[in-house]
Design a protein around this nucleic acid. Structure first.
Length: 309
DNA sequence: CGCATTTGACCCGCGC
DNA sequence: GCGCGGGTCAAATGCG
């Protein structure tokens, strides 16, 4: 019954769970989809934002915002519960977020609850590959109460980067995914997006195949799904992009995942490169529709991370 | 060969 | 103290 009626939630306490989403539940009609986000609702949320946002939060989001617009989805749709006892943890958190260079000690297993801030999104499949950071999958677990497993990714651009990402399919919204970002990148954006060695080449067959419109890769992954859950959809990067490809193919038949197109070269690593500079024209042509819908709802010209399109 | 994913085992916070 | 469950590790394996 409960739905994931939120776009972005910063969770400052306790682990990610359905209950937490519920605690930050926002009217689904208003906030369920970024593309349906209405301006009046944005304004209402902006007021809320001014009460809850602080410098720390903005710092946390900076790495997720390679191109920061004036009215960004994330900034406008964030709640930020801060516990009183958090103050003493500030230093530790900053270390765990990689804000402090060259940490002297990295515990093998980090603290979990109450220490890691999270940013949670609900996204459509076609938005998933718009994440420009390079992520490497390091685990997958079935989640109690959810028919779908959760995939765990870490930033693969920089060795010491503590940024984490969790992806799981929404159990209530077919084609939607719950994406949780933890910690922040301690480096600028990678010069190339995901390195997709051996995984992403597979392009979906045409939709004519209907029943067989799953790629061999997906079929294989379903079979080999962790803990024998053969019905689960495995959310590996390849799978996500395959899903995306499958879903969006009819809408954007021209789009092809091309590693070369994902490259951008900036003379300065710290330079803020516009999204347009990072993808070629063909890529953007195919995504114009998405942007149009988004921008018309937000009055925002810039794409927002992590799912810039 | 390098980098990716897969997957079983392990660690550890937390609730009872 | 114990067990559950989420998060991580790391060896095995796959792919270009």
């Amino acid at each position: 019954m409960m739905d994931w009626g939120l776009q972005a939630v910063v969770i400052g306490s306790s682990t990610c769970s359905n209950i937490q989403y519920g605690a930050n539940y926002i009217d689904q009609k208003s906030y369920f989809s970024p593309l349906n986000f209405q301006e009046s609702e944005y304004l209402a949320f902006s007021e809320m934002k001014t009460e809850v946002l602080n410098d720390e939060l903005e710092e946390l989001y900076k790495p997720f915002y390679p191109v920061v617009g004036q009215n960004t989805l994330m900034a406008s749709s964030i709640s930020f519960p801060k516990e009183p006892k958090e103050e003493q943890k500030e230093e530790n958190e900053q270390q765990s977020f990689g804000l402090v260079a060259a940490p002297t000690y990295v515990p093998k297993y980090k603290r979990r609850k109450n220490e890691q801030k999270r940013v949670v999104f609900q996204l459509k499949a076609e938005d998933l590959s718009s994440d420009k950071w390079a992520w490497r999958k390091y685990g997958q677990k079935p989640i109690k109460g959810s028919p779908y497993p959760r995939s765990y990714y870490r930033c693969s651009s920089s060795k010491g980067c503590l940024a984490r990402k969790q992806v799981e399919q929404s159990c209530t919204e077919i084609g939607s995914f719950i994406v949780t970002y933890t910690a922040e990148h301690n480096h600028s954006q990678p010069t190339r997006r995901n390195s997709l060695a051996g995984t992403i080449k597979t392009k979906f067959p045409t939709s004519n195949n209907s029943n067989k419109n799953e790629s061999p890769k997906i079929e294989k992954e379903k079979i080999s799904s962790t803990h024998g859950s053969t019905s689960n959809l495995v959310l590996s990067k390849a799978t996500l992009l395959n899903i995306e490809s499958n879903i969006s193919e009819s809408q954007f038949p021209e789009i092809e995942i091309n590693q070369e197109n994902n490259m951008f070269e900036g003379s300065d690593e710290n330079e803020c490169v516009s999204i347009e500079d990072m993808f070629d024209g063909d890529f953007f042509a195919g995504l114009e529709d998405i942007n149009d819908g988004f921008n018309s709802s937000f009055g925002c010209n810039n794409s927002t991370f992590p799912f810039s399109s």
